[in-house]
């Protein structure tokens, strides 16, 4: 099986190139297994990976033009020859390793933590199962970055548009009945860029390895803004 991977090492290379490798496939092989096999053949090849089971979010790559998490992408789902590139739109550090600083900055910018102004109870803050259900499809995000780096609006305005991953987390806290900072959160999302650059292209939904729907979450934030008279 032939795999073509993007190679660039700033220490030695003037410019990036594609390099082909021959990898022996096996039953149940994931794209990460194939990349590990390449690494065995050529230790200079660099990519991030860790848990191997789709929860740590380290090994997001672009395979055959679509962002995916390598460890949960069976090679049988990819047509050959498989072409693996780094996430689009991010500065490349080396090979498949990209600089995700800006992505994390947008995440931090939405204040992704529970804000509680009331005094805390001695035991847990009560929450009904129905209210807790509102967090399903939101809290499971693994911050892999597949969505934001597949978003054309994020490609155009990476400094100003928060992108789908950060906005999904913005909604995760707006949707949490325990959170008491709704007004401040909505205030912070006002303006033409941070939230409103989403044009419902839905690439984010298409690529999310956890089956989450940032576009829907962004829609719900907009609805809430209307409801609150913003």
């Amino acid at each position: 099986m032939k795999i073509s991977v993007y190679r660039y090492n700033p220490d030695t290379d003037q410019k990036p190139r594609m390099q082909d490798y021959e990898v022996r496939p096996f039953q149940g092989m994931m794209l990460r297994d194939a990349l590990l096999e390449i690494k065995k053949q050529d230790e200079s090849f660099a990519f991030r990976h860790s848990c191997g089971e789709g929860v740590c979010g380290s090994d997001g790559v672009n395979a055959n033009g679509k962002n995916c998490l390598a460890c949960v992408t069976p090679i049988t789902e990819l047509s050959q020859p498989i072409v693996v590139r780094p996430f689009p739109g991010r500065p490349v550090i080396r090979d498949l390793v990209v600089d995700m600083t800006q992505f994390y900055e947008h995440y931090r910018a939405v204040k992704p933590y529970l804000v509680r102004t009331d005094p805390l109870p001695e035991q847990e803050i009560l929450q009904s199962p129905e209210d807790r259900d509102k967090l399903d499809g939101l809290y499971e995000c693994i911050l892999c970055g597949c969505c934001s780096t597949a978003c054309p609006s994020f490609w155009w305005n990476p400094e100003k548009f928060h992108g789908p991953a950060a906005l999904l987390q913005a909604w995760r806290f707006l949707a949490d009945t325990r959170d008491q900072a709704t007004e401040e959160r909505l205030d912070a999302l006002e303006g033409p860029y941070k939230l409103f650059r989403c044009h419902t292209i839905m690439n984010c939904v298409d690529v999310c390895p956890k089956g989450l729907n940032p576009t829907a979450a962004i829609g719900l934030i907009k609805d809430l803004m209307l409801e609150k008279g913003f």
Partner: peptide, 17 residues
């Protein structure tokens, strides 16, 4: 309890606990 106050989305029982 401290973790819950910090925001951990624990699953819930019918009584909210």
């Amino acid at each position: 309890y401290e973790l819950e106050h910090a925001g951990v989305p624990f699953s819930r029982l019918d009584n909210g606990k």
